[in-house]
């Protein structure tokens, strides 16, 4: 299977030789949803068949439970999540003044936990962190992505874009070789999408679980035989930031379903 993948990727590389290497025009941008089979789309459309909603339910319980030395729940400060968190996920990663860097939604939740609740931070991809992220992202469903508006973010978006364009790994591929230049083609039977992050955290049938954008990015990096960046690494957040700003104006679908 691995070998087949390598051959297919190599073939794709050759096919991609006269690289377009151009950004996707706004009018041609498509959510990963539109690349899916109707069955998978139906699964996402109905909140009672979308398994991502199980994490949203868990998140609602966590939102209301008191944790940490401060014995505070999220709801004690932010009250009704449907009101206070509406549209919030559509602005992340956002610039954090104290750290002078962008932080993503997961990091923001953990900053709240450590500073306000005085609790231990939740591990990346843990059920609880995914549940809280899913709950918050759910409140932005249908909201257009606004990430990247703050002027302080410009240089971080630029370094994220550099990472996106940079060839790396044993297969010497850049994200853009697939997701800018070949998104209308297929790779080993699967659609190559444009790589817009408008549904995260999302339920991947392959994972049998909800997962974050960083999990997806790490899987992509492993696929091109590159050393994946650690969860929460600055490069990861910059890539997330670039991808979100690249998808600016597209609607949030979280928690989405993907194959």
């Amino acid at each position: 299977m691995k070998l087949v993948d390598t051959i297919v990727v190599a073939a794709l590389l050759i096919a991609a030789c006269p690289a377009r290497a151009a950004d996707i025009p706004p009018a041609e941008r498509r959510s990963g949803y539109s690349f899916m089979a109707p069955d998978s789309q139906a699964m996402q459309n109905d909140d009672t068949t979308n398994p991502g909603m199980l994490w949203v339910l868990d998140g609602q319980k966590l939102w209301n439970s008191k944790v940490g030395a401060a014995a505070k729940a999220c709801a004690d400060c932010h009250q009704d999540v449907r009101v206070s968190m509406k549209g919030v996920a559509a602005q992340y990663p956002a610039f954090d003044r104290t750290r002078e860097r962008p932080v993503n939604l997961e990091q923001r939740i953990n900053l709240c936990r450590t500073q306000q609740q005085r609790a231990t931070p939740l591990a990346y991809e843990s059920r609880d962190l995914l549940a809280l992220t899913a709950l918050i992202a759910r409140q932005s469903r249908g909201v257009p992505i606004e990430t990247g508006a703050a002027p302080q973010l410009a240089r971080f978006i630029a370094s994220g874009r550099d990472l996106f364009m940079q060839r790396q790994g044993q297969l010497n591929l850049a994200c853009s070789n697939c997701h800018d230049d070949n998104w209308d083609k297929r790779l080993a039977g699967a659609a190559i999408t444009q790589g817009h992050p408008n549904g995260y955290p999302l339920y991947r049938l392959e994972w049998q679980s909800l997962g974050s954008l960083q999990r997806r990015l790490r899987a992509c990096l492993t696929g091109i035989r590159a050393q994946p960046y650690d969860y929460g690494a600055p490069e990861m957040v910059e890539l997330e930031l670039y991808l979100m700003s690249r998808a600016r104006g597209m609607s949030i679908e979280a928690p989405a379903v993907r194959p």
Partner: peptide
């Protein structure tokens, strides 16, 4: 564990209704 249940709130007598359930479980 969280569960999602979809049962129609109202139905006519004798009507055939669909019931959908989704249960949170890792199924290792």
């Amino acid at each position: 564990a969280s569960a999602l249940i979809n049962v129609p709130a109202k139905a006519k007598r004798g009507e055939i209704i669909e019931i959908k359930t989704l249960m949170s479980h890792i199924m290792e």
